[in-house]
Write a protein that binds this DNA or RNA. Structure first.
Lengths: 229, 229
DNA sequence: GATCGCAGAATATGATCAAATTGCGCGAAG
DNA sequence: CTTCGCGCAATTTGATCATATTCTGCGATC
């Protein structure tokens, strides 16, 4: 009768392997700017912090490095990437090629609950913006896009887009610190309106503006920062 | 005087770490179709084959998984991905968004030796095609594109494109086995002619054709193969 | 100012534990 | 009597850790 002894009742949720848990934790830290651009990341530091062995941490760092969320420094150190103007331009090009297309597909394929989910997330986002809650802004902003892209049903494109988010996450956190949450671009209402009307092209155009404005602000902070790093 | 005892004479080349060597070996196997779509990859198998410990192999597999060149199978096994029509369509879209742009940039920024290098690689490619040498075809075809993209000086876009190559490498090998090397698309001469004339748009257009024709053939093999896997 | 040495961190191994698949044997049905 | 199916156990493989080794970078000394 009883298959295993994970829990006496309730659904059996196999807890994920340690390397997966570490990767997710590391991903959040990169994505939501809890690590600053240029900051060094050490294996033993992460292992102590996340209460894990060195091997799973090592694996998580390799994945994140392949994702572009961390970079090898030539010697054996890894750190959070520091973007230059060219990097931002490349990311902008790629995002403008991918994310409007994902938006288009999501709009055309949208299922029943999607619009509600997006509205809820956007409401939480507005609350975070009003409160000047930077971590909240970063999380709900990402969640909005993530939810939308998942609805497109295009795993490879979505993965590719998510990887780009890892690259500019730490820099976006710096942008928030500089500009505050009030002055950040938010074309989400336009996107939601287009989704309601099932106007895929309008949604894609609004997404292009959202992406372009966000990347432009990252660029401004880089230029302002003086050093090309 | 002597920094270390790697070699009594000659340039001191710090040999790469084991996990890097393993990753490169794994990458070649995926990229050049030495592993078939669906084939299982085991940690201990690779470790034995490449004469390495489990930890470096593990790291290499994580990187390759993040690259899309291998996939988790839900249980803890990993295998070479099997593409369906939707996957190929996504890869086609992304390649058509990225690779012509890289071609454009490479054409405009082309330095002195580039055209010679590309001609040499293309000549080797033609030799491989004439001889029906499938591994040679796959290697020189990839090298042609790789050389071209490196000249664009766009690291993020190049990395993104290279990741896509890892996804369709094994399937491309199957295409070669089915169609032979003679009937594969080769728009390289058009690209080279456009480079000579420094006509970036013509080069980009030729690249779009090269990419589209290649992916179309992959699609045909998938459809022919019967099962959607 | 250059060199040697030390501390800290990363690399890599092998052992150990846990999980999953495979295959075998037993029993029941035809 | 043969065959199909189910369940248990053995083997294979993955996950994690503790530890030894190597390398890098910095600081003290000559």
């Amino acid at each position: 009768m009883v298959m295993n002894e994970k829990a006496a009742s309730g659904p059996v949720v196999a807890d994920p392997p340690v390397h997966e848990r570490v990767y997710q934790a590391l991903r959040e830290r990169v994505l939501y700017g809890e690590l600053r651009p240029g900051q060094a990341v050490t294996i033993q530091g992460l292992a102590a912090e996340l209460d894990a062995g060195m091997t799973p941490v090592r694996e998580a760092i390799r994945r994140m490095t392949s994702d572009g969320g961390l970079v090898f420094q030539g010697n054996r150190r890894v750190s959070v990437p520091v973007l230059d103007r060219g990097d931002v331009a490349e990311i902008l090009f790629l995002r403008c090629a991918i994310e409007p297309e994902l938006t288009r597909r999501a709009c055309m394929a949208q299922g029943p609950g999607l619009l509600d989910d997006l509205h809820r997330t956007d409401a939480a986002l507005d609350t975070a913006i009003a409160a000047g809650d930077i971590p909240g802004y970063l999380r709900y902003n990402h969640l909005f896009h993530e939810t939308l892209y998942a609805a497109a049903g295009a795993v490879i494109m979505t993965e590719t887009a998510e990887r780009l988010w890892l690259r500019f996450g730490p820099s976006l956190r710096v942008v928030c610190g500089r500009f505050g949450t009030q002055n950040l671009p938010d074309r989400h209402r336009e996107i939601l309106a287009a989704f309601s009307a099932r106007d895929a092209e309008a949604a894609a155009a609004a997404m292009t503006r959202d992406v372009t404005e966000g990347m432009t602000q990252v660029l401004e902070v880089i230029d302002e920062g003086g050093a090309p790093g």
